[in-house]
Nucleic acid binder design. Structure first.
Length: 806
RNA sequence: GCUGAUGUGGUGGAACGGCAGACACCGGGGACUUAAAAUCCCCUGCCGCGAGGCGUGCGGGUUCGAGUCCCGCCAUCAGCACCA
């Protein structure tokens, strides 16, 4: 007699298996390089004070399922976890509550780790990294110094995006729309010395590399748009009566004959240089002040209504026609893109057209095909009014010819421009990696010697940023004052720290050898594990984080530190989980669902199952409490199947067919991240099994094997109860039997003129020819087609028979 | 404005150009219970008593056959926003 089956109690079995996995080091990557490897990666979390909400584990669960399957398929799997722990929220919390950010970070990490462990993820916790650990950021600083050594770090005085509330300089990426990424307050423009990383030097490589990796189309597209490469030409317009030349950038140098004016950005430096020759300088100054008041956000709101002012007394000479054209100032031209000045061709650029209409400037057509009295024509057509370019109809040829001519004159050259800007790399905050540079009055900027890394953060009492926009580190004399490593004289340290993006730009490399104190990672480990085979994360990181980390990796490849040019072979992204009201989950809306509560209610396995079942993985989807309970019901049914288990392989051919179908579908769907349909198919199988008087051990085991990546605790427990000493995660992934999928008879639909009119059973192996000849004579078919003239018969094997009648 | 995605029952969602609505949730009915919960069984796109008809945002088209492909709209979401 079998012992009675106790009730399914996840609160008991889940902690039990989590303990066993930890004690047996079940999911640590094997040191040996004998097996084929699989490196699965999720974006390491920022350990915020709020803890996880149910959105976070979606990515983790998906990758956990894939990694658990890979282990069963015989791979040596690296599935690491770590903490992207530098960052403003922690620092702001520290300021508010007067605790050290390191302490806050430690507590938050412990909280996050407990939550992740509660969900049973098969992370290799022996390889945890923490970006705030000096043993980690030593190598972040090391990479920075390598970038510095190779001329990819530079300092520039520019207008920066400054957040008065956070008291910090922001990158363009962090201040989209004129709002601070952290506090969402208004950003103002402030002149400042800023450290930049020359990511634009890698713009083409970042584009080219996309062709060699497996990213979905929409992710690759976003990166391409972000980089924003355009081909064109730089052309110089002499300033009449001077030796000065105004350089512009254009994508259509072939429209030079249509230039009727020029526009410069209000901040353009030539204005000050020639202030003496500008008759209406007072007016110009007033306009510039007006523009300076506007944030970038406001400037972009005035899409239609163009403003500007003419520079009286200055004109520019068209290098091809010799004609003098007026120069205007307008804020529709940005100092930060191209050269800060444009040649205006109102006939063929809508913004120029609007400006010309408003200021009464001539509009000359040089490309035929539109009606330039109504709007600018931006299409193709034959060139007119354009001297040697007349008659050209091919854009490529006319552009090439125009570039050739300006080159001959020494007034232009072909060139490319990118929307992407260099990466502003300093923050005036405490809780970041100190930038390992020293300002020496004699030697200039000098790198901290490698052997002095890590350059640690000094202990301070007060983390509040300085009122002058300086880092709290600037207030610590013992940190600031140092000796120049080159000349030995008195010098001062850089007091800014790195942005949060720094630590996350290379963490995947540290995972392969996290405890190494000689190099950032052993070369043999890098060669074995890299590249990351599959990286899943959020859509919000597919531009910034992905480009930054690809940039650093490509640089490390160039200097011979890693052997693969791209860090991630495959990238996917999950959709966001929304609150039940369909809104984004947020503390302020009060609609956050805490995974602790869900696990207490339905258990971790049901939680994981629902996260994957609720909808298409890459779509945003609202959480549903009742929906999540459906997954718990499903696991209850699996648990109760134990009551039906009897010895044997297979009794029911019908069940055997569903079983094999399910193994096949689950195996294939996991690879496509179609977890919802994989689980739906397992539900169908369980419904089928529940309907049987008994199920065999073999059938039950197969179900457990394919379900175990989704519901690992439950499957381990039943597996053990079936008498196995070896854990289920060590078992091979089951194969399916194609032969078992074959059925003798299939039901097909009978259509008349494409509309379903009946169903018939036919032998499964009926060929198309035989079916189309014989089936119309089938009595059931005849009943449907009685009295009609058959024109055509179409048979789709296994699906349907369509009879076209008159 | 540009780019991308999405649009299917009361809800989340399935569907190599081939039986639309798999699998769930909700709801309804029944069984078991003193009762409730849990569980099990049945029903559940819309209209219609029925035969049948209508149905995948809207309008066209291709096809024997369209949720799926093509053309033109509309709506929602996301990203970028005067990029010369």
């Amino acid at each position: 007699m079998t012992t009675p089956i106790p009730a399914y109690n996840p609160a008991e079995i889940e902690p039990k298996w989590q303990r066993i996995w930890a004690e047996t080091h079940a999911f640590e990557a094997e040191a040996s390089h004998a097996k084929p490897k699989f490196y699965g990666l999720i974006e390491f979390p920022y350990p915020s004070g709020a803890g996880l909400h149910v959105g976070h584990p979606r990515s983790n669960t998906a990758m956990d399922i894939i990694c658990r399957k890979r282990r069963m398929q015989g791979y040596n799997v690296l599935f690491p976890i770590g903490w992207d722990a530098f960052g403003l929220p922690t620092e702001n919390y520290a300021i508010k509550h007067h605790v050290h950010p390191a302490k806050v970070t430690r507590e938050n990490i412990d909280h996050f780790r407990r939550q992740l462990q509660m969900l049973g993820f098969s992370f290799d916790y022996s390889r945890e990294v923490d970006t705030t650990d000096p043993n980690y950021f030593k190598w972040t600083q090391w990479i920075f110094l390598k970038l510095f050594e190779h001329g990819l770090v530079f300092r520039d005085k520019t207008l920066v995006n400054y957040c008065p509330s956070c008291k910090v300089v922001l990158s363009n990426e962090d201040s989209q729309g004129g709002k601070c990424d952290v506090c969402h307050g208004d950003v103002v423009q402030l002149p400042k010395d800023v450290w930049y990383l020359r990511i634009t030097a890698y713009a083409d490589r970042l584009l080219e590399g996309l062709k060699t990796v497996d990213y979905p189309e929409n992710i690759a597209m976003q990166q391409v748009n972000w980089i924003g490469k355009s081909q064109g030409a730089f052309v110089q317009f002499p300033l009449a009566g001077t030796e000065e030349k105004i350089e512009i950038y254009t994508t259509r140098p072939d429209t030079l004959f249509g230039v009727t004016f020029m526009v410069m950005a209000p901040e353009h430096p030539l204005i000050d240089k020639y202030a003496g020759r500008i008759a209406n300088m007072a007016e110009v100054k007033a306009y510039r002040e007006e523009c300076a008041k506007k944030t970038e956000f406001e400037r972009t709101q005035l899409v239609k209504d163009k403003t500007g002012v003419r520079l009286e007394g200055l004109t520019a000479v068209n290098p091809l026609t010799g004609k003098e054209v007026p120069i205007y100032l307008s804020d529709y031209v940005m100092m930060g893109y191209g050269t800060g000045a444009i040649m205006a061709v109102p006939a063929h650029d809508q913004r120029d057209w609007e400006f010309a209409k408003k200021f009464g400037i001539e509009i000359i057509e040089v490309i035929q095909g539109g009606d330039i009295t109504k709007e600018a024509y931006t299409g193709d057509g034959p060139m007119v009014n354009s001297g040697f370019l007349n008659g050209y109809t091919n854009k490529k040829d006319s552009i090439a010819r125009a570039v050739e001519e300006v080159e001959k004159l020494g007034l232009g050259r072909a060139g490319v421009q990118y929307k992407m800007k260099d990466w502003a790399f300093n923050r005036q905050r405490y809780w970041g990696e100190p930038i390992p540079l020293i300002h020496c009055p004699k030697c200039g900027v000098v790198a901290v010697p490698y052997e002095e890394l890590p350059l640690r953060l000094p202990e301070v009492e007060d983390f509040e940023p300085g009122q002058d926009g300086k880092s709290p580190l600037a207030r610590i004399p013992s940190f600031v004052h140092c000796k120049c490593p080159k000349c030995g004289g008195d010098a001062e340290r850089e007091t800014d720290t790195m942005p949060q993006w720094a630590g996350s730009s290379w963490y995947f490399l540290r995972y392969v050898d996290p405890h190494n104190d000689k190099v950032f990672a052993d070369r043999g480990e890098l060669d074995y594990w890299m590249p990351v085979d599959w990286y899943n994360g959020g859509m919000e990181h597919v531009t910034r984080h992905l480009l930054y980390s690809r940039f650093w990796h490509q640089f490390l490849y160039d200097i011979g530190e890693v052997s693969c040019p791209e860090p991630y072979a495959k990238r996917t992204a999950q959709g966001m989980i929304l609150a039940e009201d369909g809104e984004k989950m947020s503390k302020s809306r009060g609609n956050v669902i805490n995974p602790d509560d869900v696990v207490a209610e339905i258990g971790a396995d049901a939680f994981r199952c629902y996260e994957m079942f609720m909808g298409a993985f890459d779509q945003a989807i609202p959480w549903s409490v009742t929906g999540s309970k459906g997954c718990r019901k499903f696991l209850d049914r699996v648990w109760r199947l134990q009551e039906k288990v009897v010895a044997g392989d297979s009794f029911s051919p019908a069940l055997n067919a569903v079983l094999n179908e399910t193994v096949k579908k689950v195996s294939e769907d996991i690879e496509k991240m179609k977890f919802n349909t994989a689980i739906a198919q397992m539900m169908t199988l369980v419904n089928e099994m529940s309907a049987q008087p008994t199920v065999t051990v073999k059938e039950m085991e197969t179900l457990l094997l394919i379900l175990s990546p989704v519901a690992p605790h439950l499957c381990e427990e039943i597996w053990q109860r079936l008498g196995h000493a070896e854990p289920i995660h060590h078992q091979p992934w089951p194969a399916w039997d194609e032969a078992a999928l074959q059925k003798a008879e299939v039901e097909i639909a009978v259509q008349v003129n494409g509309k379903v009119r009946g169903r018939i059973m036919i032998p499964a192996d009926l060929t198309k020819e035989t079916a189309e000849q014989e089936l119309p004579a089938n009595p059931d078919v005849q009943r449907i087609t009685a009295g009609k003239t058959i024109v055509k018969v179409i048979f789709v094997p296994g699906r349907l028979l369509n009879i076209v009648v008159k």
